[in-house]
Amino acid sequence: MTLHDAARKLLEEHKVQGVLGYRKGSLPFRTRPYLFRDPCEIEELVFNPFCGLNLARYLLFLPQGIERVAIVAKGCDGRACVALVRENRLRRENLLILGVPCPGMVDTRKLAEWEGLKEHEVTLRGGEIVIRGVAYPLASFLDASCRRCRYRSPLVYDILVEGGEVPSLPQEDTLRELRSLPEEKRWEFFRKELSRCIRCYACRNACPMCYCKECFAESHKPSFLHPSPTLRDNFVFHIGRAMHLAGRCVECGACERACPLGIPIATLFLAVSDTVREHFAFEAGVDVAAPAPFVTYREDDPNAFIR
C-alpha cells in the first residue's frame, strides 16, 4: 500500500482522527508538519528527502478531540514514538505508526550554492542526488545524523509503506574526524560554535524528547544559567541538555536542522548516544521493554576514569 492510500484509508475508516504528516511548505525544498483530518486533504501529503522535522514532537501537542492518531514515521520518528511510549508520554494503542523507509534527509543549506534552484531540478537516483542534470553522491548532501543512521525504517510500526526506495548508504562515523583532533582544537571548535548560539531554543523545541513542562534553562528556582547568550550560559544549556538526553536521544538530528544559525549541535547528542551505546548497550527508542540506562547499573561498569 502506498503512503497516500494507507493514510486515506485510515481516515476514511475512522481508524484514527488525524494523520500527522508533512505537507509542501511555502518555500522551495521546505516541508511543514500538518495534521490531516479530512481524507480529501491527503493528496497534499508529501514525503521526500526534505522532511527533516521529527513529527513525534507533535504527538504531545495534539489539538483537543484527537484521541487516536497516525504518524508518518521515518526510522527516527519511529524511535521517538517508541521512546515516548516507554516514558509513558503516550499510549501505544492511541498511536498508529505509519512507517516509511527513509532515503536520508538532504541538508537544504547545502543546496544554497545553486542559485534559484527549483524543486523539479533536484531528483534522487539510487545513492545519488541529481541537481540540474549533474549527479553527486547523496551521502555528501545528507545531515550528519542521517549519514550515520542505523535504522532508516521504523523498527516498530503498524503499517509499513511499500515502494519507498532506500539507498544502501554506508554508515559513517561522523564524529571520527572531530575525535581525532587534539584537545585544544576540539575546544576551539566547540568554543566557536557554542558562542554563536543565540539561545532561541529552536533545538530544544524541535526535539521530540524535550517535553519538560519547565526546562532547566528557564527555571528560576533553582536557576542554572542566565538568559543572555554568553559562552558560559550556552555551555550550561547545551551540555546540560545533552546530559538530559543521554539515553533518550533518538539521533534524528531535528535539533540541528531547526537551528537557524546552522550550529552543528547534534554532535553533542550523537556523542552522548555513542557513549550510552558503547558502555551501557542501550539505544533509545529501539526496545520498549529495555530498562533505561540511568535507572539501572552493573557492578562492572567502567571505573577507570575515576580516581
Binding site: 576540539r186 576551539e188 551540555i239 546530559m243 554532535t267 553533542l268 556523542a271 558502555h279 561498569d301 576514569f305
Partner: peptide
C-alpha cells in the same frame, strides 16, 4: 559521570 566525562572529553 561516565557520560559527562566522555562528553567533556570530546569538548576538550
Amino acid at each position: 559521570f561516565l557520560v559527562l566525562h566522555k562528553l567533556l572529553d570530546l569538548l576538550g
